[in-house]
Design a protein around this nucleic acid. Structure first.
Lengths: 121, 121
DNA sequence: TTTTGTGGTTACCTGCATGTTACTATTACT
DNA sequence: AGTAATAGTAACATGCAGGTAACCACAAAA
């Protein structure tokens, strides 16, 4: 007796694909090793290049400027150049960038739970 | 007049770092190009290898089996081998895996909003 | 006029994450 | 006996993400 191909999937694979696509879209903009961390960092207020460099541990200057540029293009952050002194550039989230907050929050929350789970082996 | 180094950061950088760390932990387990999509896919029920291959568009067989293996190790999915016919292996989320649901949901939700934003230029 | 600090950019290099292709074992159907 | 499907694995190839280090421009301070 041959089992048909479809035994195990009685789900709405439409819904499934739709959901996957949405996730994929999100990851396209927020993907990469650093963007989410940068947003998380900027959620606490506007910061200067060197501040972010310090607070997002491990990121290199090159990657920071690259990611920030991308995020500016995607309207997630706003770049403001102060009128000289030793230059001073500050970055802050746009309103749109702020809309990522729930994502970060949920992720951070799960991250904490995960860390606890791993801790008890 | 020289501006001091700390003008732009009056925030709790403790909170900030903590949040970034949590996000980082989460991304460590859910990172990579495919894991989140796979979880999203399995949220709609247990599926067989070839079903996931079909529904997560773009993934290669190699990557699928590799990611599934990692996720099994991390207790996110459970692998069940059916008693033969043409073999039949099904994958489903563990309870722990289900706990990722809010993350996916928030991400998918933001993904949709983002798509709309991009659509109107 | 030389040095210092900020905010970068550029060239160069490397490795890992991923893709591609071929191959396997098992069973069932024809 | 030969073919097809399922669930992989192994060998090989490759591109791009990311790191490192050097350099630039500008202003202020020494």
């Amino acid at each position: 007796m041959q089992v048909t191909t479809k035994t195990v999937i009685p789900h709405s694979s439409e819904e499934c694909r739709h959901s996957i696509r949405a996730v994929h879209d999100a990851m396209y903009v927020l993907g990469g090793k650093w963007k989410i961390s940068i947003v998380a960092c900027l959620l606490f207020g506007a910061k200067r290049y060197s501040d972010i460099l310090r607070e997002v541990e491990g990121i290199s200057g090159k990657m920071l400027s690259r990611e920030l540029k991308e995020m500016e293009v995607n309207f997630l952050v706003k770049r403001t150049v102060g009128k000289s002194q030793p230059v001073m550039v500050s970055y802050e989230l746009t309103e749109y960038g702020e809309s990522v907050k729930p994502v970060i929050a949920t992720l951070a929350n799960w991250g904490q739970i995960h860390r606890q789970c791993v801790a008890k082996r």
